[in-house]
């Protein structure tokens, strides 16, 4: 029987899953993903996690519990720095330690430290370190990683076209996706900015993107922009944000405000998120400078109800429509 590696379906899943999945399956392992976020997973996470943590971290604990008895290993990479400059939120840095201290009876945790500030060679070392759990064949490990990388590129290209993570994953597996991205010129355009693990998780974001599309708005996100487009916004920040995701969100906000292509900007944030109070204020101030861009913050937490969010989205879209008419 092949080795089963569990990947929690949250946090960096929404950014790197295709890369890992391909890598592990190429090496002959079976990848097991935790179930979709559900009330049960949220509740389990809330019960175990330190109470002051944000929802995404609580959710992560819930997903790990969901996987616990089904796998031989759980993959929880310690994301420190991927672009060699910025780092991740301290909770990401301490994630494997938090999990190991809090949850009991876990299978072995694979927690490679991914810190590419140390140079390019570092990545190869990490790949070998993780791959060697499954095989000692160096060549096989690197060819698996090469496969995974090109698969991962395809995934990112789909995101750029405007598909959500879930839709992109389906498309990669050859399934059909029923989405019409070619919106009409006249439709409203709304930027939904937030961390991928919130905006793309259908449960925790109460399907916000689909809801907005349903209300006739075209949705743009951080992922649709290229690194170059984001980097171009860097000079607007007196000091680049420390955290990778936060920096991307702010720069995406600055980009959409600069081009003026959007009618509204929605910042989606989690209750108690540390870096986000800065991100939120920066986006608010950026949108304030633009008279024709409306701004709204939606804060979600473990108690967020669908009806409440939907009402606010509807009101927001109605207001944008009214503004257009005048």
């Amino acid at each position: 029987m092949s080795v089963r590696i569990g990947i929690p379906k949250t946090l960096s899943y929404y950014v790197y899953y295709p890369l890992w999945e391909k890598f592990f399956t190429e090496l002959g392992a079976e990848v097991v993903v935790s179930q979709n976020t559900s009330r049960r997973i949220v509740d389990d996470g809330v019960k175990e996690t330190v109470n002051d943590a944000c929802v995404p971290i609580k959710l992560f604990h819930g997903h790990v519990l969901n996987l616990k008895d089904k796998v031989d290993y759980i993959f929880i990479p310690r994301l420190v720095s991927v672009n060699g400059e910025q780092i991740y939120c301290p909770k990401f840095l301490g994630l494997p330690d938090m999990i190991k201290s809090t949850l009991r009876g876990l299978p072995e945790v694979i927690a490679p430290k991914i810190d590419l500030r140390k140079g390019r060679f570092e990545l190869l070392k990490i790949v070998y370190q993780v791959g060697s759990i499954l095989t000692k064949n160096l060549l096989q490990i690197y060819s698996a990683f090469k496969e995974a990388k090109s698969y991962f590129e395809d995934f990112n290209n789909l995101l750029k076209e405007g598909y959500t993570v879930e839709e992109s994953l389906k498309l990669l597996e050859g399934e059909e996706v029923n989405v019409d991205l070619g919106q009409e010129e006249s439709s409203l355009k709304v930027a939904v900015l937030g961390y991928p693990y919130i905006t793309y998780d259908p449960y925790i974001s109460v399907n916000m993107i689909q809801k907005l599309r349903g209300l006739g708005a075209e949705v743009v996100t951080t992922d649709m922009l290229t690194h170059r487009q984001l980097d171009k916004q860097k000079p607007k920040l007196k000091k680049d944000l420390f955290w990778t995701f936060s920096g991307e969100v702010v720069k995406a906000g600055y980009h959409y405000c600069e081009t003026g292509e959007i009618d509204g900007l929605i910042h989606v944030t989690a209750f108690g998120c540390g870096p986000d109070f800065m991100v939120d204020k920066l986006l608010e101030l950026a949108a304030k400078d633009k008279e024709d861009i409306a701004f709204m913050t939606l804060t979600i937490d473990e108690h967020t109800g669908e009806a409440g969010i939907v009402t606010r989205l509807e009101a927001f879209v109605d207001m944008l429509n009214l503004r257009r008419k005048h």
């Binding site: 996690t49 330190v50 002051d52 943590a53 939120c89 301290p90 909770k91 840095l93 301490g94 330690d97 938090m98 201290s101 809090t102 108690g272 998120c273 540390g274 870096p275 109070f277």
Partner: peptide, 29 residues
């Protein structure tokens, strides 16, 4: 401080330290 990220990470690890070293701790946010 409430929502302090590094201390939240520390807090979730402290129960284990406390148990291992038999030292009580109290967190005040």
């Amino acid at each position: 401080p409430f929502t302090c990220i590094p201390e939240i990470v520390a807090k979730s690890i402290l129960p284990e330290v406390s148990k291992d070293w038999n030292i009580p701790f109290l967190t005040i946010f």
